[in-house]
Design a protein around this nucleic acid. Structure first.
Length: 581
RNA sequence: GCGCCGAUAGUGUAGCGGUUAUCACUAGGCGUUGCCAACGCCUAAACUCGGGUUCGAAUCCCGAUCGGCGCACCA
């Protein structure tokens, strides 16, 4: 049994996660989070919030998971997210139809499915495997399609990423941020991709949770004001160059930027924060690296892209986060699709005086002559180069609505004015750290899992970090007797009032209960025994070291809370208490 | 989507045409038990689904679903 199996078995057995719809035979690519898993997920998401919403000051929004068609036309998911497929009628092999005619047509991407099929037929293209006849070409799109309202007139799509929510709300977000760059918006939520063949448990899902941040920045300045906070951090980098040699390097963030390995501070800063977040969630240092996208795997618009990859036992290195400089691609796409202005007006430090050449059509003359077309004519004239205009002599030719129009030069004034320019409109660039929450959850579980021998018995421990582990503390009466369960219940009550998640367990021997809590990852157990009645003390038992310390009941809540919050170690707690007594 | 392999209590399993469906762990109850999976007694709990062959199917056949591996796919 390998580690993947051990972890998924434990996860299923103990209520972390399991395949969804089991009652009805299941459906590939869907998972449920059980009682512990849902809590772990929430805690990981909250840790993410503490990094990106609290510490970076980004604004969290929450958008519909269904989107209208225009969004995905603009984002490219409608065209680029689907492939034309064809199937061999003999051997049932599936092929990318456009790939089969590459040698015949130079740009098969430009053809429709019917056109591709016609090329296949005209050129007698057969199955590369068996030579059999190929089926008609059909589109397989990775988006789930649905209908908004009755009928099929108004298609909707389940979003394939949360990012579009931030892009299409850019104007409102900009306004909310008082019209100034930089600012960040984030969203944690479900996304959907109708994968052809989901596998590997929670690693490739059809419905999954993303946490994405879109940081809108001024493209002319990709430094980060808080870069000094992270420049000393040492990360394992697997750069483009390193990949050619198959070598990773340990390097500070500052050095990586200085050497030009990471494109700029802005990107490097979020790579560093990503590292810190993953460590805080419980990803192991020695099973984490940052891999740079090679030029050919990066989206064409991206300037640079680094994936956080996690080493898993069976699956190898798996991408859990992507941090990309997406430049102005997304905003420009939505500008083109929506005709809205998604630019930011940026003031210059000093207003500049500039001589500007203005083209002024004589609207008094053009209006009556062209009527409804007049506006378009004026725009066409103003779009011309003033230099060309001057050289064009008696009349100027413009094309409007496919018509060729001649306009006398004396109806067009070209004047040079000096004006004050206070700033300019720019399209922000976007830095996008995008996190796959489900993959992170699985990685955290696998990295936390260990088996160790204790007195010739093997012990399974989920070494989840305190604060991340779904149960904060277990309260265990040594025996299931009223004189012990009474005080124990009071302790449970106190912990709960303090906001902790508590497990209370009286069943079986104390050793069995310790092991059970080890297996689900509860970091601390509090045991109520007969000394509790006599001395007013309880023991705190540490999951990882199995050490115990005795603590007075009155200091218990504070001590446990400090241990979970990592404001105190077990040794410090022990020392403080022995000093106090 | 294709090919190969598999699917039995919560978990891991035995079974190879006729069994009360095996065993262990787990879980629950009672007793016992004074800190690391103790013990005794009792209890609960399963043949993935649908069709077929047969007097009779967990077992053989077909299909579906799910899972593993390989191929393909993976903005």
């Amino acid at each position: 049994m390998d580690r993947y199996e051990q972890v998924t078995e434990l996860a299923r057995r103990r209520g972390y996660m399991w395949p969804a719809f089991e009652l009805y035979g299941g459906a590939a690519g869907f998972y449920d989070y059980g009682p512990l898993g849902a809590r772990l997920k929430r805690r990981i998401e909250d840790t993410w919030r503490s990094f990106f919403v609290v510490r970076e000051g980004f604004s969290e929004i929450d958008c519909p998971t269904i989107g209208v068609e225009e969004i995905f036309k603009a984002s490219g998911h409608l065209s680029g997210f689907s492939d034309p497929l064809t199937e061999c009628k003999e051997c049932k092999e599936i092929y990318r139809a456009d790939h089969l005619i590459k040698h015949i047509i130079e740009v098969p991407d430009a053809l429709s499915d019917q056109e591709i099929y016609r090329v296949i037929q005209d050129n007698d293209v057969g199955c590369p495997e068996c030579g059999g006849r190929l089926s008609e070409v059909y589109e397989f799109n990775l988006m789930f399609r649905t209908a908004i309202g009755p009928g099929n007139k108004y298609p909707g799509y389940l979003r394939p990423e949360t990012a579009q929510g931030m892009f299409i709300n850019f104007q409102r977000l900009l306004r909310y941020h008082r019209d100034a760059l930089p600012f960040g918006a984030v969203q944690i939520g479900r996304s959907y991709r109708n994968e052809i063949s989901p596998r590997q448990g929670v690693i490739r899902l059809r419905e999954f949770t993303q946490a994405e941040a879109e940081v809108f920045i001024d493209p002319r300045d990709k430094t980060h004001p808080r870069f000094c906070e992270v420049e000393e951090l040492i990360l394992t980098l697997y750069s483009r160059q390193g990949q050619e040699m198959g070598q990773t390097e340990r390097m500070t963030i500052g050095e990586a930027v200085d050497k030009g390995i990471i494109a700029h501070q802005m990107l490097a800063y979020y790579v560093a924060r990503t590292y810190q977040f993953l460590r805080a969630a419980g990803v192991a240092e020695d099973r984490l690296r940052f891999r740079q996208h090679k030029a050919d795997e990066m989206a064409h618009y991206a300037a640079d892209c680094w994936d956080a990859e996690v080493l898993l036992d069976r699956l190898g290195w798996i991408e859990v986060v992507g941090v990309a400089d997406r430049t102005d691609y997304d905003l420009r796409s939505h500008m083109a699709q929506s005709q809205a202005n998604l630019k930011v007006f940026v003031n210059y430090k000093q207003p500049e005086r500039r001589r500007v050449v203005r083209i002024k059509p004589d609207m008094k003359a053009l209006g009556p002559r062209f009527k409804g077309q007049a506006k378009a004519v004026a725009q066409a004239l103003q779009a011309m180069d003033p230099a060309d205009l001057k050289e064009s002599g008696e009349s100027v030719t413009v094309h409007v609505d496919g018509q060729k129009l001649f306009i006398e030069a004396n109806l067009i004034a070209v004047e040079e004015v000096e004006e004050e320019v206070r700033g300019e409109e720019i399209v922000p660039h976007v830095i996008e750290p995008s996190f796959g929450i489900d993959r992170i959850i699985y990685s955290v579980l696998e990295h936390a899992y260990r088996e160790e021998m204790v007195d010739e018995e093997s012990r399974i421990v989920l070494g989840l970090l305190p604060g991340i582990a779904p149960v904060d503390v277990a309260v265990l009466p040594l025996m299931d007797r009223e004189e012990l369960t009474g005080p124990a219940c009071q302790i449970v009550d106190e912990f709960r009032r303090m906001g902790m998640i508590v497990d209370y367990d009286t069943s079986g021997s104390i050793g069995r209960r310790y092991r059970r809590n080890d297996e689900v990852g509860t970091p601390f157990c509090v045991t109520v025994d007969y000394e509790t009645l006599e001395e007013g003390t309880v023991t705190i038992r540490d999951r990882d070291s199995m050490k115990q310390i005795r603590v007075g009941v009155q200091a218990l809540g504070e001590t446990i809370s400090a241990l979970i919050g990592k404001r105190m170690t077990l040794d410090e707690a022990s020392a403080a208490l022995s000093q106090g007594s």
